[in-house]
Amino acid sequence: MVEYPITRAENGKKLHRFLRQNLPGLPLSGVYKWIRVGRVKVNRKKGKPDLVLHEGDTVQLFVSDEEYAALRRRGPKFQGVPRTFEILYEDGDLLVVNKPAGLLTHPDRQEHRDTLINRVLAYLYDKGEWDGRAFAPAAANRLDRNTSGIVLIGKHAQVLRELADEIRGRRVDKRYLALVHGRIETPGTLKQALIRDHEKNRTRLARERRGRHGVAPETLEAETRYRPLAVAERLTLLDITLLSGRTHQIRAHLAGVGHPLVGDIKYGGKPLRGLRHQFLHAYALTLADGRRFVAPLPAELRKLLESFGLPTDLPAETSTST
Rank of each mutant, 00 (worst) to 15 (best):
E111P: 08
Y123T: 13
A70C: 03
G102T: 05
Y89I: 10
I117K: 02
L104W: 03
H106D: 12
E86N: 10
L88K: 04
S64D: 13
L116W: 04
A69I: 06
G80I: 07
L103F: 00
D65K: 11
F62L: 12
E86A: 09
H112E: 13
Y123Q: 07
A101H: 11
F62C: 13
F62V: 15
G75K: 08
K127T: 14
V97D: 03
L124V: 14
T115V: 07
R119V: 00
K77E: 10
E66Q: 12
A70V: 02
E129M: 09
Y123D: 05
G75E: 13
L88N: 02
E129A: 05
S64Y: 08
P107V: 12
P76C: 06
R113M: 06
Q110P: 05
Y125D: 11
K77S: 09
R119L: 00
E67V: 13
L95C: 15
S64E: 14
D91V: 05
D126W: 03
E67S: 11
E111N: 14
V97N: 03
L103P: 00
P76W: 08
L95G: 08
V81K: 00
L95K: 12
R73H: 06
G128Q: 15
R113N: 07
Q79L: 15
A101N: 05
D93V: 10
G102N: 14
V63T: 09
N118G: 00
D65V: 09
L95I: 14
P76I: 07
L103W: 04
K77C: 11
D91S: 07
K99E: 07
D93A: 15
L104R: 06
D131Y: 02
L104K: 00
E86L: 13
Y68C: 04
V120C: 04
N98I: 05
D131A: 14
Y68K: 10
L71N: 06
F85P: 10
F78R: 00
Q79P: 15
G75C: 12
G80P: 15
A122L: 01
L71Y: 06
H112L: 14
P82C: 10
N98S: 14
R109M: 14
V120Y: 06
R72H: 03
P82M: 04
V97H: 05
L71G: 08
V81T: 00
K99N: 12
Y123E: 13
R119C: 01
Q79S: 14
R74S: 05
V96G: 10
A70D: 09
A70R: 05
V97G: 04
I117Y: 00
D114Q: 01
D65C: 03
L124P: 10
H106L: 07
L88W: 08
R72T: 15
Y123H: 12
G102F: 11
